[in-house]
Amino acid sequence: MKKSISLVFINIITLICILVLLASCKKNDAKQNSIVTNEEDSITIEHRDKLKGVSYQMAPTKTWLNANEKDDVKMTIVMDLNRTDASNIKKMDSIIIPTTFEGKREDYLPFPLQLEALKNISKIIFFSYPTQTFAAYKNGTLVYTGPTNMGREKDPTPTGLFFTNWKAEETTSTFNDEWELKWNFNIENKLGVGFHQYELPGYPASHSCLRLREKDARFLYDWADQWVLADTENIKAKGTPVIVFGKYDFKAPKPWLQMVKNPDALEISEHELANLIKLNLASIIKEQKNSKLIAQHK
Rank of each mutant, 00 (worst) to 15 (best):
L200T: 12
G194C: 13
L276N: 06
H207N: 08
L81M: 08
N11T: 11
I121H: 08
F185P: 09
M150P: 15
R213T: 06
L81S: 05
L22W: 14
E199L: 14
Q258R: 11
S94T: 05
G103P: 05
I96Q: 04
F162V: 14
S283G: 13
T99G: 09
L191K: 15
W227D: 01
S173M: 14
F101W: 04
Q226F: 00
G103C: 06
T76L: 07
D216M: 00
H271E: 11
Q288L: 12
L181A: 08
K215M: 03
V73A: 02
R211A: 05
V193F: 12
E199Q: 15
R211T: 05
T131D: 10
L15F: 15
N66Y: 01
K90M: 06
A136M: 08
T159D: 12
G194N: 11
I124C: 11
V54M: 05
G202R: 10
L181R: 08
F134I: 02
S208F: 05
K27Y: 12
K3P: 01
D264A: 13
P147N: 12
P201D: 10
K278I: 10
G160R: 15
M79G: 04
Y203V: 07
L276P: 03
T61Q: 02
V54G: 05
I18C: 12
A274H: 07
T133Y: 15
T100Y: 06
